[in-house]
Design a protein around this nucleic acid. Structure first.
Lengths: 328, 328
DNA sequence: CTGAAAGCGCTAACAA
DNA sequence: TTGTTAGCGCTTTCAG
């Protein structure tokens, strides 16, 4: 059995109250007793029990991250940022895979409540009313990452419409005139609609055709990227450059193009989105519209801990030029 | 303020002991009171407080995973398995990035002790005496993933030497005679030495040259793969097939080969290790020696929870044939 | 400057 | 079948 505060108190010849004060840096003891108590603590190798502390303080110094999928390049990059910042601030982080499943998510929310987590970081999904209510009731603070909601909840994300607009414009500036897009899940209000809007808007503003058939939908994944690219090729045989809604889809497209013997960027230019590790590992290295994923994770923690006045953050996107976009 | 058991007891006209019994499925109450209490619980939306429960039971139903890096294809795949199995068993999982740093690791271990985690899953690193002692003192159960130690601690991993042996033999069977290896960090007892040994052994058994200069060391990462491949090419210009100690290094090699205009598998065959997502996303899709990463995560949880009698598990590796190895 | 004592919300003897 | 009560290890008044 590990030592308790009582043991320390007894051995140091003081009361537990005094030990507690010293441990918590409060006032109310002499330098002398402090020294003595600290010495005893070292001798005994005493460590406070965070559970007991949490029972009283109602604070557990624990955060939870809810994400659709753990083994996902996008998510794990953000997660890395969360872990780092939380660690620096002295918090632990619990991971919860929602699998975009309502029942599973609610079950997690219940566990989190029982475990009294202090804050929740909710990623890449729509916050339903049910989720929102559950979180509100448990009294945890909340921040959204890469999504937003109608409720007044702080979020940290990139301006997707603008980023898509900029990526598309970049392609146009490189001289491409027949553009196409490999989009994410059709109808996805969070990650698809704004990007499609940005894509079309950029084309319109540049006086280029923006018909619906220039957009091939997928699901953000690698295979869907290859499939969507194939469809796009059929529908727009003269396509010169393609904006992809995720790096994974872009890499899928690259793969298909390789297979067909179509040169990138020689014949077709490809631009990705996210700047996950997949982008640097692609061949040729993928030019992409970067989201500051790691930073987003760190900022989310700052916000959820209230160090950043619960303000939403629109982080800036950035073009990362590698080798899949050519000049025409 | 959320309701407590006392509130429920009062409202249902029973004692807290009875409520507790009902909640924990113990015996000692009539069907009638059970019904009434449960109804009150629903009405009030009462939820037990796991912190208070943990204070008494000394069990928190929380597991921790210690890994060198969060945003790593290998680690996140294992992590996904851990999360899934833990969730099924009703446990939460805390992530701790060690960054292969002793101070950081010890700090985490202290936090974990204060938070009374029930079990620790320690991944891909050497368990130092210091770590071991700390974990033993806190009384958490422990399991090693993708590593092992001199202490008698259960582990779940693949037989690296054998897997490397098999991968190399596969290359030989395909008719390749001048082989090379892109290895991980030189001297790494866990992930490098056994694989190098397996590689050499296979070559010897097949009567092929296995000189040290056929092995180029890197650090398991993408860039180091490209660099190592370049070195290997200089040292063994006629190399026909290369066994890589990780998929990332293999993809790095692929990248360099593309750049040099060397055809894979036409001129050189490449085989990876791990079967992470990088393998399927590579071009050409990477043939690789798969480790059952997700399964390893799940098994680790089973072991650490004692559902598997603290037995070590040597999971079987498996060749995943894709398109980077040719017949000669 | 220090200690006694009352909880935090729950479990588990021990009684009844 | 039920209730009473003594803690779990700690924080925090309130006295001294």
């Amino acid at each position: 059995m590990a030592y308790t505060m009582k043991d320390v108190a007894k051995r140091a010849g003081v009361s537990v109250a005094t030990v507690s004060r010293i441990l918590n840096g409060l006032s109310g003891y002499s330098e002398e007793t402090k020294k003595r108590v600290n010495q005893v603590i070292d001798e005994m190798g005493y460590q406070p029990n965070a559970i007991a502390r949490g029972l009283i303080s109602k604070k557990t110094r624990t955060l939870a991250v809810l994400l659709p999928e753990v083994s996902d390049l996008f998510a794990s990059e953000v997660l890395a940022g969360v872990e780092e910042e939380a660690h620096e601030k002295g918090y632990s982080v619990i991971i919860c895979k929602t699998a975009k499943n309502g029942v599973r998510t609610m079950k997690y929310l219940q566990t989190l409540r029982e475990n009294q987590v202090d804050g929740i970081i909710f990623m890449s999904e729509t916050l339903t009313k049910e989720y929102y209510e559950a979180i509100r009731k448990m009294g945890a603070s909340l921040v959204l990452v890469s999504t937003r909601s109608d409720y007044d909840i702080p979020y940290v994300k990139v301006d997707d419409r603008q980023a898509a607009y900029d990526a598309t414009s970049y392609l146009v500036e490189k001289g491409h005139r027949s553009l196409g897009m490999l989009s994410g899940t059709e109808g996805d209000l969070i990650a698809t609609v704004p990007r499609v809007a940005g894509f079309k808007e950029a084309l319109c503003d540049h006086g280029l055709p923006a018909e619906e058939h220039r957009i091939a939908y997928g699901d953000f994944g690698f295979s869907s990227g290859a499939l969507a690219m194939e469809r796009l090729l059929r529908r727009v045989p003269d396509v010169e450059a393609v904006f992809c809604a995720s790096d994974e889809m872009a890499v899928g497209a690259l793969s298909l193009l390789h297979r067909k013997g179509i040169k990138v960027p020689g014949e077709i230019s490809i631009i990705g989105y996210d700047n996950t590790r997949a982008a640097e590992m692609a061949f040729p290295p993928l030019t992409t519209m970067a989201q500051p994923l790691y930073q987003m994770g760190k900022k989310a923690v700052d916000i959820v801990l209230g160090h950043r006045s619960a303000e939403s953050l629109l982080l800036s996107h950035q073009m990362v030029e590698r080798e899949t976009v050519g000049q025409r």
